[in-house]
Amino acid sequence: MSASKAMISKTAAIKSYPVSAKLLHWASALMIISMLFLGVSMIQTLAPWQYGAIALHQSFGVLVLVLVVIRLLNKLRIEAPELPEDLSKMQVLAAKGSHILLYLGMLSLPILGWLMQNANGVDVNVFGYLILPTLIAPSLELYGLFRELHGLVAWLLFCLILLHITGALFHGLIRRDNVFKSMTFGNSKIK
């Protein structure tokens, strides 16, 4: 009895992500989903709001990149909750694999945007205060490559996000296990 109690208290300590990880997760989620919607809309419009939209898209894109790097560093520091033990191997693989892909998407999307701007011979301006270093010399061919990859990765990332939400809701509503709750607020003290 005392032995199993010790085990519970050991796992109980990491049932939920720390507040730092939750804040980073939800801030990134809000920004990334907004940027995806803004991105696909702004490339079609002819209206004057496009000029400001592109500037915001670039600035927030850089912010997303910074947040992803902070999240990855934070990951080294924090202890993440384990997945439920009764998950099948396939489910565990899908969960881990989709998270790796999400991080790859979140990292590469802003970098591809940065590269495509440089290929077009212009620099990335962050909220009018900071101009990012120029990574590559202007090139029509490289613009062709990076512009298409930026669009492609955006659509793939959106599909991954849909998958991620589906998985989270499956855990929260169907399995009703601890996975969904581990990333929401107000329940840090549960068990």
Binding site: I43, Q44, T45, L46, A47, P48, Q50, Y51, A119, N120, L140, E141, L142, Y143, G144, L145, R147, E148
Partner: peptide, 23 residues
């Protein structure tokens, strides 16, 4: 001026297409 922005937007789309073709 809405046509000023429209020029920018249309040039961007034209550039995207010919850049892809050049690549």
């Amino acid at each position: 001026d809405p046509i000023l922005n429209a020029r920018s937007a249309a040039y961007a789309e034209s550039y995207r297409r010919r850049a892809r073709e050049s690549f």
